[in-house]
Amino acid sequence: MRAHGVIALLIANSLALASLLIMLSSGLALIYGLRDVINFGHGALYMLGAYLGYSIALIGGFWTALVVSPLLLALLGIAFEYLVLRPLRGRSHIEVALVTLGLGIILGQALIFVYGGEARGVDAPPALAGSVRMFGLSYPLYRIFLIAMGLGSCTALALWLRFSTSGLYVRAVSQDPSVARMMGVNADRLSLLVTSLSAAFAGVAGVLAGPYLSVDPGMDVTMIVNCLIIVVIGGTGSIAGAIIAALLFGFVQVAGSVFLPDLAALAPYVLLFVVLLIAPRGIGRGRAPA
């Protein structure tokens, strides 16, 4: 294979991985911006999305799963806002983060209890099963779909934040919560929106992960650790930072597995500590916690 073919594959594969990571880590960054809370249970939401997607796809097919699973997750996000984030508003952020960690463990264990410990494979829908030839290379169609979904949601998020009123409010609260509240922004209502949105995104990512990765009991921990690394690299709470960090992360991960397969598992951590050494606050302009 020619050199530029390898590079094109590398970029395509890292974009595919980054697509999932963007959906998850931008959700984390959004909640952090509004509530100063890192949701350690986000990995479990993603896992729930994947298992729900698996079950629904068995009954109604992949496309139904891609719609229904995120909707169910959004409902769970609303419950999370009302039952966890609001009652614990007065607690320290660390305590709330620990509660989300505990809830994540409970959810993960419940899923293992229901579905058992073995990994499950999900087939790509027939329309996306083949591969296409692009630039003289054959590439799985499903991954192209994944990249399109990732970039699409990324663009939609950016447009929403940039041009809608609620997006403006979200940015305002993320930048300075007290001033935004003084100007009459209802942070609770925004938080409801953002929490359900980021849970729904976790659902989308979970369903999309099915045919790409596998659906297995360890997927929540793997994913939350990756997302936390991305959020830290991106600068805690910075959404643009998280997106850039996710792209960087995807590239390092994929390039690592091509060029240094023996050490690929460590590549993200090396990236993390290199970034921390250079920029302790991450690459984006995150806000220091109140």
Partner: peptide, 15 residues
């Protein structure tokens, strides 16, 4: 780093 990032980083280092 701040306490939340510290918590995430210790998790990452452990993994």
């Amino acid at each position: 780093t701040n306490p939340l990032a510290f918590m995430m980083l210790t998790l990452a280092a452990g993994e």
